[in-house]
């Protein structure tokens, strides 16, 4: 067995694995279209629960509990709040994904895109996924970064406000484009 034989064997196996993975992943419901740019899809935001979550995760709140409650009970509460933190960052990831989805739809439907922006977004999403995974592991190991999770929520909130403004703008354009499309009866045109 020589090096090139093994390398081509690995390459072939990799190609097969990736191809089968791509073809067998649950495909999106339909191909991307302007209808994807809808307010409903991106409207399900967990930022809505931010005030409650922040209060529940506030270090002062926890300190207060330790003052008033017996130790084991306070620990139990802390444990439960850690669970809340876990499910909250998991929900934030879903928000992140839906925003990422929206940005991809916009890229797909744009007549011109910047390669640098696309590669940057791809890199950032990989970075996010990696850090998210690491934080989950640490939270499970017992860390309680409640304040940091709260500021993460602030960040997502700002992102949402900007994106919702963009979505409204897109929705308006979508309606205009649909009217234009129906008036042209879809005659093989790209309406930009």
């Amino acid at each position: 067995m020589t090096f090139d034989f093994i390398s081509f064997f690995i390459l072939g196996a990799l190609l097969i694995f990736v191809f089968v993975w791509v073809l067998h992943q649950p495909a999106p419901r339909k191909s991307v279209s302007k209808d994807d740019v809808s307010l409903e899809e991106s409207g399900s935001t967990h930022i809505t629960y931010l005030p409650q979550i922040r209060q529940a995760l506030a270090p002062t709140d926890l300190a207060y509990l330790y003052e008033r409650m017996p130790g084991p009970l306070a620990q139990k509460v802390q444990k439960q709040r850690r669970k809340i933190a876990l499910s909250y960052i998991s929900a934030l990831r879903n928000d992140f994904r839906s925003l990422l989805h929206l940005s991809r739809v916009i890229a797909t439907l744009s007549p011109e895109i910047a390669a640098a922006h696309e590669f940057e977004r791809f890199r950032l999403s990989l970075e996010f996924s990696w850090r998210y995974l690491m934080i989950r592991i640490r939270l499970r190991c017992g860390a309680t970064p409640f304040a940091a999770v709260g500021s993460l929520s602030d960040m997502m909130s700002g992102l949402h406000v900007r994106m919702e403004t963009a979505i409204r703008e897109l929705a308006k354009r979508s309606v205009l484009a649909s009217e234009l499309r129906s008036s042209l009866d879809g005659g093989g045109l790209d309406i930009t």
């Binding site: 439907l109 007549p111 354009r173």
Partner: peptide, 11 residues
């Protein structure tokens, strides 16, 4: 037909 957005939206 694919109705595209205007390039300003992306930029």
């Amino acid at each position: 037909t694919t109705v595209l957005l205007s390039s300003e939206v992306y930029s």
